[in-house]
Amino acid sequence: MPRFMGFVRMEEGIGMPPQALFDAMDSYIGEQAAKGHFLDGGGLFGTEDAVNFVVRKGETTRVDGPYAEAKEVVGGWALMQYDTLEEAIANQQEFADLHAKYWPEVSMVATLRQISEEPPAAAEG
């Protein structure tokens, strides 16, 4: 059964979502988990304590948050599985629609990406 990662990107520091969204999400995630679709997920803390390791030209540099230049940050994630890509897409739209309904003031992007079940092939050269 194909697995997928869902990400929520939104502007940082916009405040807490309304309780109605939390309630709707609890119900939605409970239903998805009962069907075996929602495997794991959660919200993320802000970037004030984030740590990035940037690799450029063979050098690794540590960059600590917060990141003033960041317009959007990943605020949450989910690991899911569905029988088909179409089913995954439909459910990701349902997830996004909950935000539109219960938190219409927010601008966010709900991204869905399928997880590769095989290791990537090495580059030839």
Results as ranks from 00 to 15, higher is better:
Met1Cys: 07
Pro2Gln: 07
Pro2Phe: 04
Phe4Val: 05
Phe4Pro: 04
Arg9Thr: 13
Met10Thr: 13
Met10Pro: 10
Met10Phe: 10
Met16Cys: 07
Met16Pro: 05
Pro17Phe: 13
Pro18Val: 05
Pro18Trp: 02
Leu21Trp: 03
Phe22Lys: 08
Asp23Lys: 08
Met25Phe: 10
Ser27His: 12
Tyr28Val: 09
Ile29Pro: 01
Gly30Val: 08
Gly30Cys: 10
Gly30Met: 10
Glu31Asp: 10
Gln32Leu: 11
Ala34Asn: 03
Gly36Pro: 00
Phe38Gln: 06
Phe38Pro: 02
Gly42Val: 04
Gly42Phe: 03
Gly43Met: 13
Leu44Lys: 09
Gly46Ile: 05
Asp49Phe: 06
Asp49Trp: 06
Asn52Glu: 14
Asn52Tyr: 05
Val54Phe: 04
Lys57Gly: 02
Gly58Leu: 00
Thr61Arg: 11
Arg62Asn: 03
Arg62Phe: 08
Tyr67Trp: 01
Glu69His: 03
Gly75Gln: 03
Tyr82Phe: 14
Thr84Arg: 04
Glu86Pro: 04
Glu86Gln: 12
Ile89Cys: 04
Ala90Pro: 00
Ala90Val: 02
Asn91Asp: 12
Glu94Asp: 14
Phe95Pro: 03
Ala96Pro: 02
His99Thr: 10
His99Val: 11
Lys101Glu: 11
Trp103Ile: 06
Pro104Glu: 00
Met108Tyr: 05
Val109Gly: 09
Val109Asn: 15
Thr111Ile: 14
Leu112His: 05
Glu117Asp: 12
Pro120Cys: 11
Ala121Leu: 06
Ala123Tyr: 06
Gly125Ile: 11
Gly125Pro: 07
